[in-house]
Structures are given as structure tokens and as C-alpha cells.
Amino acid sequence: MRHAPIPHRRKVLLLGLGAVALVLLGAGAGAALLLSGAYSTAATKQHFAITYRVLETGLRYSLESNAEEIEVPDLSRVAKIEVGHACYRRYCVQCHGAPGVARDPIGRGQLPSPSRLEQSAREWPPSHLFYVTQKGVRMTGMPAWEYRISQEGLWSTVAFLKRMPFMTQAEYAAMGARSDDIACPAPSGGHPYSVERARTMFQQYSCHNCHRIDGVVGPETYIGPALHEWPARAYIAGVVPNTRANLARWIADPQVFSPTTLMPDMDVVDEHAQHMARYLFEQQ
């Protein structure tokens, strides 16, 4: 004997309910794991092998899709190996090491551990190396460098990376002697204003670690004042009248206005300071 067929609408309803129950169950299990404290945040506890592989695979696919549109310039023309080496010594060797050079302690205790770059630098196309250096890798500790290093500097770093795997310890040391007085170039700006970029800047200069800022996700911090409803403020830091020009100058160099302020100079590029000031003044 056959059962009477379940009407279509009820089937959909049952499926929907099942899906909701599953989602709730998953969320509940997650909450229980998190709130019980059973999930360890210690950096001494390695990921499961499967988690590690999944993350690695995710990185590879993300790179492939995101780096696709990057146009690689003629590196022999645009990039200067010595400049790239200067950047590498200033910002990279601390965590990644170099031929015959150990990483600093700061690069040893991290999870995931920063890779030695000889292998990826050999195997990855320049566009991938550029993308990872420019944008960083979230949840790994790899910072984005585009707010620290100019485009030319980034391409120079890529050119240096492509060379590094083929260097002996002696060659690396010799290059160090040559690029000793070369600086890694900071970005020069030249980008149009956009709300989205301004938000990224607040994160990239770590503003949100001390200030709560509308539109920027960050910790519940009380280190500095919250910046909500900024245009209504009369003063910046209680010492300078709150105009957009003053704010841009304050962001770039707070200790010029107020030598005793606890707000540090974050090496903010002038154009970026202007964009952040504009963002604060234009928010609703």
C-alpha cells in the first residue's frame, strides 16, 4: 500500500524547518565550544592536519582568482633589486629569514609559522607574490604592505624575491653591503578618495585599536576617544579647533600640535591623512 504523497508546499516547509534546525544545532555546538573555553587560542597548539591543508588550499585558490587581474610590468625596467632588498631587510627578514639568515624571535613563535620564501618565491608567478605582499594574508599575521611600500617598491620586492632563492649566503650578504643606504620607498598617494579606501586606512594605520570609528569594525576600545559624530566636535584632542585641515595635520603628526599627547605618529602618508579626515567629517 502506498502512502498518500506529501503535498509540495508541506515538503518545502519540512525541508526549511530541517535546514533551520541544522543551522541552529551547528550554531549551538559552536557557541558551546567557544563559551566552555575548550577551544584553545594558544599558539603552541598546532592546527589539525586537515585544517592546515584546507587553509593552504584556500590561500592558493584565493590567490589564483584575485591575482588574475594584476598586470605584471616589465620588472627589468620598473623594479630595482637593490630597492627590493632594502624593503626585504626593513620589513620581511624579521619573520621570513633569508639565505643563511635566521628569522628574529618574533617570527618563530607564530601560528601559522611564516614560511621560508625560497620555495614560494621560486614557484609562484610574480603576480601572486605581488598580491600577497600588497594585501597580506588575513588570520596569518602577514600584514598588507601597500600602505607602507610604494607600487615601485612592491614590484622591486617581488623582483628581489624572484632572485633570492638562487643566492648563496655570501651573495645575500654582499647585496646587503650594496643596498645599505637605500631606503624602502613609502607610498606617494595619487589615489582618488573613496569611503571604502578610507575605512581600510583606519585599519591599516591601526586607528581602530584606540578609537571606535563608525563603519570600521574593531575592538571595544577606550584607549583614545570614540570618533562618533566627529563634525560636532569643537576641539581636536582638547587643544586645536576642529577643522578638516587641522584634523588632517593632526593625524599625520599629532605631536607637533601637542608635544605631550599619547597619540603616536603613525607615519601616515599626507594624502591618507586627508582622506581619513574627510571620512570623519563626511560621516552622517
Binding site: 577606550y222 584632542a237 582638547g238
Partner: peptide, 8 residues
């Protein structure tokens, strides 16, 4: 919860 006084 403010760690700083007048930012100074």
C-alpha cells in the same frame, strides 16, 4: 575604562 586622561 579609559586608560588615558585627556590623551596626555
Amino acid at each position: 575604562r579609559f586608560p588615558h586622561l585627556a590623551g596626555k
